[in-house]
Design a protein around this nucleic acid. Structure first.
Lengths: 255, 255
DNA sequence: CGTAAAGTTGAATTCTTTCAAACACGGTGG
DNA sequence: CCACCGTGTTTGAAAGAATTCAACTTTACG
């Protein structure tokens, strides 16, 4: 479930090799990694990568799968954060060790590349450190737009935003099939992400579907009226796009 | 309003010189800055540092004052983001240029140090880049906790969280006088930060004050019952504290 | 095929908003 | 010095959005 790999073989077939941290790592270090540097970690659907309160010992790049971050506060109350999608990172960033603020659970079978010592790698590679900062900044703006959306929008707009935001982020990595994307979220997940109840998410989804904006079937979502969704919540999407273009500039067009 | 300064004289009296970016900058570059490297920028209360849509040309460190970030979406709708407090940064991070996602308005007379070329500085200084990533990560967790709070808490808890969060961040820099902190926010600002209406913020403040949790007078807020506030929303504060300790470790105790 | 998990629906309640009006305060000018 | 005005705060009553509770239906899965 957790073993060392040779970078060359593993990365050469990775769809994320020209994005994010990987882009910089591969650019500069090529195939000379020490086997300790990178580990492969597999987590089956419904299993945890780590739990809130765990001591973390590395940075994880999600190669494939879908990770849900959540916190249990009081019993029965669960706060769910924006999902981690393939190519994105989680775990340690700039610290040498830290306690996980939230649990990370796989919603699909997932594969990670684990970097046990990102901080020290960054210490000798300012370009890597700068890319890390860029990724953090992107995450930050994403969180801020979720905040603005949840704070100021009604249920329909919140759901529309969630769908568009996921679509855009998946599309960046080419993980869409046209307007269809994987969608492993349950209604209770959506509720706990957007600050609604399951019941109200259900009613809201019903309305949006009835209006012909999208359909959900068998853990896949297909957008039927992108324009309508966009006119509802495009305001919250644009800053994220802009930030992505600025921070990660060349990545977008290199694949 | 915007002129070059000699680092040595300006920074030696700065209360932030042992925090954040400044700590790293001063550690490594000492007094040899080119006058172009750092500029001083003054912004009077109610004036803007920049407006949403502006092309940005530098990174700003707030030396003193209080900055409010906000976005106007539809007419009459204003989304306010967590305030920028002394010692914190805004503007460009890892890009060479970017369009401002939100407007930055001074709520008090404010003084900034402007770094026009942070990206290139980071390119030759991985420690600086790593600290930048740490600051972004801190901002990110802060935004996530605001998100969790706004999504899952009622009005009383949201207001309590806002107050505690501001108190903690000001206290980190020694900007509190005991349990009293500056508080230039209007009720409408609080409303637009927390996703409530002014009317409801007013009623909520009245309740919390009546319960003896704090008082507000003349743009200052005094916490009377820290324990009660903490038991209400400490859950949302702890991760932020932990992240700050991890990312900025030694800073806290160096002043 | 049967059970557990997820989704759907209705009715009553609660929290928050909306609209409207009144009040307090600080600054300005006569 | 006081009247006036604008901005921000306070209060009330009615309307609306989302929640709660409860029951029921459908789907997923061993």
């Amino acid at each position: 479930m957790n073993y060392h790999i040779k970078l060359a073989s593993f990365c050469s077939t990775c769809p994320n090799r020209r994005f994010g941290l990987c882009q910089i790592l591969l650019e500069q270090i090529s195939n000379q990694w020490h086997p300790q540097t990178l580990q492969r970690v597999l987590v089956k659907a419904k299993q945890h990568l780590f739990r809130q309160g765990n001591q973390l010992d590395g940075t994880f790049i999600l190669r494939e799968g879908w990770i849900q971050l959540y916190r249990i506060t009081e019993p029965g109350k669960r706060e769910v954060f924006p999902s981690i999608l393939p190519g994105e990172i989680l775990g340690l960033y700039v610290e040498d060790q830290a306690t996980a603020a939230y649990s990370a659970k796989a919603l699909q079978d997932s594969v990670f590349c684990k970097i046990p010592n990102l901080v020290s790698l960054c210490g000798t590679n300012s370009k890597l450190a700068l890319r890390l900062a860029g990724l953090c900044e992107f995450d930050n703006l994403k969180a801020e737009m979720y905040l603005a959306n949840v704070a100021h929008c009604d249920a329909k707009e919140r759901v529309a935003f969630l769908i568009l935001e996921l679509y855009r982020r998946l599309e960046l990595r080419g993980l869409n099939k046209g307007f269809t994307i994987p969608f492993p979220l349950m209604q209770a997940d959506i509720a706990d992400m957007l600050g609604l109840t399951t019941v109200h998410v259900n009613r809201t989804l019903a309305v949006l579907k009835a209006e012909g904006l999208f359909v959900i079937q068998k853990h896949e979502l297909t957008i039927l009226d992108f324009q309508a969704l966009y006119s509802l919540v495009g305001e919250y999407l644009e800053p994220i796009n802009e930030c992505y273009r600025n921070c990660m500039n060349d990545c977008r067009y290199m694949i």
